[in-house]
Design a protein around this nucleic acid. Structure first.
Length: 586
RNA sequence: GCCCCUGUAGCUCAGCUGGACAGAGCACCGGACUUCUAAUCCGAUGGUCGCAGGUUCGAAUCCUGCCGGGGGCGCCA
């Protein structure tokens, strides 16, 4: 069950001011009125709440704003140097430098860099990646894995208890043919083929034999019966397939740098024993219907082509279960065994209706409270032709090959840009850049949209790319290498925000909190990406205009070192939340 | 046929659940390296926010209807 959080950071000035202003707005507009404080390009922030109040009360918005301001002035002493009413009734707020500097000093000494913890700790299961045993991982698995991983990192960072679940496809009729194919090849040969990652070849060969020969097909079907009957030798053979495949998946995860381990495996086979119970329980609550020989449930509001109620089939006409049954078992398991407060499904957009129906049936059956299950949907990865990304030969692109190409391209770029980098470091840097570029390209656009996969753009050091952000971080590290000061020591000094660039950077750094929470609230990693890009731009502006090591005086130097330190840490942590590493040199 | 997603600068994308004149980045053009990494920065050009209505003091954002693109719609997952 949800519980109170242990820590609570200093918040974004926007949030702080919002809380300070709340009583003033409440006095004029009534309790619970939102001041609606937002960043502004006219000032540091603007409060738009007066307009909503005026509308509700039928009053003049400027007069409402004046009434609010009369009370608010005293509340914001020391926080705002200037508050003025503008336009139809906005309150334009300008923060004092002292306030910003003290907030920044607090953030610098905070283990979470000013990001608030969750008020209530929830147990959240995140369901992502889910590759199929003895089947190649392709680009389709990239998004679920990368987005899911980022969401896990962020939920964990703000204090939630997170359970990762990798729902691998390790059960079903294809395993009859796969096991028979393995026997034909010989176990040793089959295992080595799978462990080097030729899953596509293995699967295809099995498929070809299955479709070609009746004898093989009969063997495969008999093998399925043995598998489902729990035959020991068949289960052992099946186990070899699963073990070799997961070993291969782990090499991909290692390259990708995601958090998934064998401990996170929640294979379909795990739910197999629970499937009859799902049907029984649906029958017990009176939801089960028979339709064309199948056992089904009709969730309200779903229609088929003919405009008739659309069923969720939980047992087909010959008594077999399907993925709907498994997904329902999964919901029950998460609610009753894991006792989760929330479940997040990072699954492609085409599954939207299926998941909605599974959730609807689960709610009708009383297993699931509304809003507990969330579908974090995402679009496709497209090629330059705006169609699903394919390999040169026209087949679906192996994820492994894609990642290897990223590493090669990044290595070439590093050699080109920084030939002096030692060879050992070069490989590590190329890995950070190459994988970072691929992940960032995936995370930096709104997940619901398709995006176009373009090597040249994602590996560019200009624009909204991982290398650009990593470079900003590396430059700061370079300053500290030359400065020969202890990074931690500068955290005691309160920065002086003398120039527009220093001020802009400080404001941006303090918005980290809001950026992280916006991202979490919508499960939209691209929001954090946008923030980090803005941060990198603000930093490079500062870097160009504000000499650090050659600052005019020692106090300024200390102040700027402090800004550099927080910037580097926010950038590193921000990238880390996206699953991207930040090299100290590149 | 019904349902879901989507349409913003030449290209790739943001736009903070209704706020001020729609923002970036590429590309193109013009500048800045004896300088803490020029893998960078500064500036200029560039948009009837798919179209038409509506709600509102105020709409890219909400509602309705069209048009274009993608996807889903009973025994695979």
């Amino acid at each position: 069950m949800a519980e109170r959080a242990e820590w609570q950071s200093m918040a974004d000035p926007i949030v702080t001011v919002s809380e300070l202003l709340a009583p003033a707005f409440a006095a004029v507009g009534g309790p619970g009125v939102d001041p609606v404080v937002r960043p502004s390009d006219r000032a540091d922030a603007q409060a738009n709440g007066a307009l909503a109040i005026a509308k509700q009360l039928g009053q003049n918005p400027r007069q409402v704003a004046e009434a609010v301001l009369a009370i608010a002035r005293d509340l914001l002493v020391g926080v705002c140097s200037d508050i003025e009413i503008a336009g139809p009734g906005f309150l334009n707020l300008t923060f004092t430098n002292e306030f910003l500097a003290s907030q920044l000093a607090a953030a610098a000494n905070d283990s979470h860099l000013g990001v608030r913890s969750t008020p209530l700790v929830e147990h959240i299961v995140v369901d992502y990646s889910h590759p199929n045993v003895a089947k190649e991982m392709h680009v389709g698995h990239l998004r679920t894995t990368v987005i899911g991983d980022a969401i896990v990192r962020m939920l964990t960072f703000v204090g939630h208890r997170v359970t990762k679940e990798n729902h691998i496809g390790d059960w079903g009729t294809p395993f009859g043919m796969l096991i028979e194919h393995m026997l034909d090849l010989g176990e040793t040969e089959a295992a080595s083929e799978l462990s080097v990652g030729d899953l596509a070849g293995f699967y295809k060969a099995a498929r070809v034999k299955f479709e070609a020969g009746e004898a093989f097909g009969d063997r495969a079907r008999q093998r399925v019966v043995l598998l489902q009957g729990g035959d020991a030798e068949t289960l052992r053979l099946w186990g070899v397939l699963v073990a070799e495949s997961t070993r291969y998946f782990n090499t991909v995860y290692a390259t990708l740098g995601v958090l998934l381990t064998d401990a996170d495996l929640a294979p379909e086979s795990m739910y197999n024993p629970m499937l009859p119970d799902v049907v029984t329980r649906l029958r017990d609550v009176g939801l089960l219907r028979e339709s064309d020989g199948a056992q089904v449930v009709f969730p309200a509001g779903y229609l088929n082509r003919e405009g008739e109620p659309l069923p969720l089939i939980v047992q087909n006409s010959v008594g077999g279960y399907n993925y709907a049954t498994t997904d329902l078992a999964c919901v029950i398991d998460r609610v009753e065994r894991l006792k989760v407060d929330r479940m997040v499904y990072v699954v492609g957009a085409p599954q939207a209706q299926h998941l909605a129906m599974v959730f609807a049936v689960s709610e009708m059956a009383g297993w699931l409270a509304p809003g507990v299950a969330v579908h974090v949907a995402f679009g496709n990865v497209l090629g330059a032709d705006r169609k699903m990304l394919k390999s040169r030969s026209g087949e679906s692109l192996k994820l492994n090959e894609l990642l290897n190409e990223a590493l090669e391209r990044a290595e070439a770029a590093v050699v080109d840009k920084n030939p002096d980098l030692p060879a050992a470091e070069r490989t590590a840097v190329a890995h950070a850049i190459g994988i970072g570029a691929v992940k960032y390209a995936d995370l930096s656009t709104d997940r619901i949209k398709d995006y176009v996969f373009e090597w040249d753009r994602m590996l560019s050091f200009d624009g909204n790319t991982a290398p650009y952000l990593q470079y900003a971080h590396a430059r700061i590290c370079s300053i500290f290498r030359r400065a020969e000061v202890d990074r931690a020591s500068v955290r005691n000094s309160v920065p002086v925000l003398a120039t527009p660039q220093e001020r802009a950077l400080a404001l941006r750094l303090l918005a980290f909190d809001t950026a992280v929470w916006d991202t979490i609230d919508r499960y939209s990693p691209h929001r954090l990406c946008t923030y980090l890009f803005d941060l990198a731009q603000d930093f490079t502006g500062f870097y160009e205009h504000c000499p650090v090591l050659k600052a005019a005086d020692e106090a300024t130097k200390q102040s700027r070192l402090a800004l550099c330190d927080v910037t580097a840490r926010v950038m590193e942590k921000g990238l880390d939340l996206l699953g991207i590493s930040a090299p100290e040199r590149m």
